[in-house]
Amino acid sequence: MRDFILKRIAAVILPFVCVYGFYVIFHGHISPGGSFAGGIIVGLSYIAFSTIYGIEKGRAKIPDKVLTWTESFGTLWYGLMGLVGIFKGVPFLANKLAGVDLGLPGALFSGGIIFYIGLGVGIRVASTMITIFFTLMEDQS
C-alpha cells in the first residue's frame, strides 16, 4: 500500500495506538483489559505500520534478533517475578506473602508483582504477534 493519506494518518495515529496499548497493559490489574489485550494492541500498531509502510521497512525497524530476545525474555521475566516468592521463602508466584507492598486499591502501582508480570506478558504477546505476522508474510512471499 503506497497510499499517501494512509501513511500520513498512520504516522499520526500509530504512536497513540502504541501508547494506548501500553496503557492497557499497565492498567491490567485495575481495569478491564490487561496484558494480553494490551500486548495485542501494541503488536497491532506495529503490524499496521508494516502493512502500510511495507514489510521491508517494518523489518528494518525491529530485527529478528530483537524479536527473539523480547519474546524469550518477556516470558523469562514472568518466571523471574515468580521466583521472587521462592527467594523470600514462600511459594512460587506469591505476592503479598512475599512482602511486596500491595498499595492502595485502584492506584496504578498497586497489586504488587502483578504490575510487573503484566509488563512481561504484554511484551511477550506483542512480540509474538509480530513474529506470527512476519512468519505468515514470509511464507506467502
Binding site: 527473539t68 524469550s72 523469562l76 518466571g79 512460587f92
Partner: peptide
C-alpha cells in the same frame, strides 16, 4: 513441585536466543 515444571519450561523458552 513447581521447580520441576518451570525449569524445563523457562529454559526451553530462552533457547531461540
Amino acid at each position: 513441585p513447581v521447580l520441576v515444571i518451570i525449569v524445563p519450561l523457562f529454559i526451553g523458552i530462552v533457547l531461540p536466543v
